[in-house]
Design a protein around this nucleic acid. Structure first.
Lengths: 374, 374
DNA sequence: TTGTACGCGTTATCAT
DNA sequence: ATGATAACGCGTACAA
């Protein structure tokens, strides 16, 4: 970083409550509803009603009040409103991973799209260990600080579930393991996605396949387990022989010093299989792409020698031309936000608990197995 | 003054959809500082001091208060605290694009990392037109609702700049066009990045190159312009001939019905060049990758026939093995947040305005030009 | 070290 | 339709 000289502004940021409003920057400082009332020549209550668009306000007065407010650049103090009304107009979004992961960022965007127009602010938080989760929840009489909580991708323990049940604000689960404790939820139908992937591979002629799982960081991941189970069940149901179904668990990322090592481990595990499978279902796109890179280094061509199917359809999947199971976290988040909105209004959501359908995206990482293996 | 906390609970605060929740709804509802005081047998102010860790509190008392607070599951009402103290403990983050773009999501994460430990909440917002921007700013006596504003990737007009200057809360620009109006800023040195890219291509032996730009959605994008200019300047300074430097502006995404069409347009423009350049510098990774796909369909091999350099080094770049100019928005956001923190404390940031250095990432999309073109 | 009392900017109730 | 006035829950000079 290079140093630049900055323009220095002496004044501001030194505001003391109950203290002097040391003039400084001129006005523009903290216009209150009361000042608008004075300016418009009406009472505080009238200003409040007029500006909030309540009825029982003469349209003439309302106009005058609006003008006065504009003139003074008035805007409500959310804090004061919240304190008085009991509604915070804020919603907490809890994640288990970094906010810039594909999934979490999409959820944020989706929720934002429906909540912002309703004038709700979104407050994202993350927890990555059960300890943090527990801390978050124990302080969660967030009753007082937010109007609803949306919990994304977090596998709650019974302690948290209990707290959830007692909360007086609506709670919505997103991609959670169970719907237990939530007032509403949106889950992905992992099983269906995996079923479709396996069905594709079978149709292509594959006889021997493996599932490769590597949980992402965090204590709460469980989709690996779920997807692996779905893989086995689907394949068995379709007539695959147990001896032709392999399951490789690479471990967690934290078990390795670098991501490359984790990938190398997966590659080694695949190469060690004898005979090698002709197709791989991988838990997530990121690991699938890395795996493909690793296999190619060892002369395994994808898709000629090995078909690979990912899961999620993150942006990288299209870039890497990866066949994968598509899910739409933005849409799921919109749905979750809609449910939260309904619950906050005291209404019944269209559907308390819903299940989103994944879609198989056919791209270049899958093909018929090599001749010798058919 | 008479206190009747707990006696009168306006029921617009009690949320109960579909009637009662199994039993427990009992108390867990709204514990106030006062109740803790009663439980601990001290005054309200003592509780306040004890829980906030101020000195001049007997450690014995503090312990008792803490226990009482835990027992009652007390947590502060941020609204009330804010109202009383004048600090909101919230920071506004303004973006010009969807929150789930690589850049914006990374900024969010970076800012979160430094602000959350300091107990600040992050409030993300987006604006995509000047109208929205103007609305955001006109209501921005957000003085009252947040303690600082971080503005990311937004090209402010003079109107907004003026408002910025009058704001009484710290404002930090991130990836903005100028530092005008901001108390502090973090910018990327686009010029250096583009210079390095051009230098690489020259060293590889390229003689004829093109810059391809396509602004992302939104009214505020200007990096395209900036990067294109830097491309031309760098190349000319390195001795390239003007006739060997092409500049292709594909237009904005909104000009096309689909992204594929926009990509097709770029491909056509490149193919139409005669003689074709042997190297392309593309404004962003996403478009670079798409372009490569399009060119390959027309038999142009990358990198054998055409070298391509992207910009940003988003996740997709590594997956697509794209040579690109790396920038680190997470780190930039951390820096911006640090500055905001210092300004809010009334301190002078280490550096008011800083410039981040991009790094050229050498990957598989660049090579020497074909024989015939050397 | 601890307690008292008032203020922060709105909303909501009850008069008028 | 409009105006007083009491909460809302906490911070903080100032008194004890």
């Amino acid at each position: 970083m290079i140093r630049c000289s900055g323009l220095f502004r002496p004044d501001h940021r030194l505001w003391r409550p109950g203290g002097e409003r040391t003039g400084k920057v001129g006005r523009m400082v903290r216009v209150t509803l009361h000042e608008v009332a004075v300016e418009a020549g009406v009472s505080d209550s009238t200003v409040s009603r007029a500006l909030r668009g309540l009825d029982k306000v003469d349209e003439g007065t309302r106009a005058r009040v609006r003008q006065a407010a504009d003139r003074l650049h008035f805007s409500f103090s959310r804090n004061a409103s919240s304190l008085a009304s009991g509604k915070t107009m804020r919603i907490s979004l809890l994640f288990s991973d970094k906010l810039n992961t594909w999934f979490d960022a999409s959820v944020l965007q989706g929720a934002y799209e429906v909540l912002y127009p309703q004038r709700y602010d979104l407050i994202p938080s993350t927890v990555s260990t059960y300890e943090q989760l527990s801390a978050f929840f124990s302080r969660l009489p967030a009753d007082r600080n937010v109007d609803a909580v949306i919990v994304a991708s977090i596998n709650l323990g019974s302690g948290e579930t209990d707290i959830l049940k007692r909360l007086t604000i609506p709670t919505v689960g997103l991609d959670s393991r169970t719907i237990e404790g939530f007032d509403a939820s949106v889950l992905l139908d992992d099983r269906k996605g995996m079923h479709d992937a396996v069905a594709l591979l079978k149709r292509l002629g594959h006889r021997r396949m493996a599932y490769v799982g590597m949980p992402e960081p965090g204590d709460f991941e469980f989709s690996s387990q779920r997807r692996g189970d779905a893989f086995m069940e689907s394949a068995l149901a379709m007539g695959f022989q147990p001896r032709d179904l392999l399951r490789i668990d690479v471990g967690r990322r934290a078990d390795y010093r670098t991501y490359d090592e984790a990938v190398g481990s997966g590659v080694a595990r695949v190469l060690a299989l004898d005979p090698m499978p002709t197709a791989l279902c991988v838990e997530s796109d990121g690991y699938a792409i890395a795996l493909i890179g690793g296999l190619r280094k060892y002369g395994i061509r994808v898709p000629q020698d090995m078909s690979v199917v990912g899961f999620d359809d993150a942006d990288v999947a299209a870039a890497a031309d990866l066949t994968t199971v598509h899910q739409n976290p933005e849409e799921m988040a919109r749905s979750a936000a809609d449910k939260a909105l309904a619950l906050m209004r005291g209404e019944e959501p269209e559907e308390r608990h819903s299940l989103a359908d994944p879609i198989l995206m056919l791209r270049g990482s899958t093909a018929r197995p090599p001749q010798r293996a058919r």
